[in-house]
């Protein structure tokens, strides 16, 4: 069992919030050995992203130095250290999609949204990113918006895909 947080003699200098969902998940674990990544998965599932506050909380909860928590969080591409938009547009840049022109599709989305790959629009509606191979190579090039897959996407389709969600976002906001 890893040492608990209070084994460290440095006084915590920063107040952190409370996260009962993380506590509840940790209670189900038989041991904190190797628990860091599963806990971060859980936290991201609950809160959408991993804020500094959440990372510090996890660090103290598991008794793992904050530097290590940060090191692990930044190592893996699935962990978001910044909030994400409501609609996550991900252009697949796997090889099959690349060979079939995914780069031009990404460029079209960048132009339509006025943001770069990895950024979020000012209104918090859209996030543009790239992913690697969702395994739907038969439909390349592929774009995912949240969990929905669009296949055989051409650059000129970018606008209509965005418009479809713009309608939804407008109603919901």
């Amino acid at each position: 069992m890893t040492a608990k947080a209070d084994a460290c003699e440095c006084p915590p200098t920063e107040e952190v919030g409370s996260y009962p969902e993380i506590d509840a998940f940790c209670d189900t674990l038989p041991s904190y050995d190797g628990a860091l990544i599963p806990v971060m998965h859980k936290a991201q599932e609950e809160y959408g992203w991993l804020s500094r506050d959440v990372l510090l909380y996890i660090s103290r909860k598991l008794g793992v130095p904050a530097s290590k928590v940060y090191g692990v969080a930044t190592f893996y591409s699935l962990f978001n250290l910044e909030p994400k938009g409501k609609f996550k547009i991900n252009v697949c840049l796997g090889t099959a999609c690349y060979v079939r022109g995914a780069e031009n599709v990404l460029a079209a989305f960048e132009q339509e949204l006025g943001i770069k790959n990895g950024e979020m629009t000012g209104d918090g509606l859209f996030n543009l990113g790239s992913i690697r191979c969702v395994g739907a190579c038969g439909l390349a090039p592929v774009v995912m918006v949240n969990d929905r897959v669009f296949g055989n996407v051409k650059p000129e389709d970018a606008k209509s895909i965005i418009d479809e969600y713009l309608g939804e976002g407008g109603e919901a906001v």
Partner: peptide, 14 residues
């Protein structure tokens, strides 16, 4: 009579 529908990720996406 069995109708087996391909429901792997690729099938579902299609």
């Amino acid at each position: 009579i069995i109708l087996a529908v391909g429901e792997a990720t690729c099938g579902i996406a299609a």
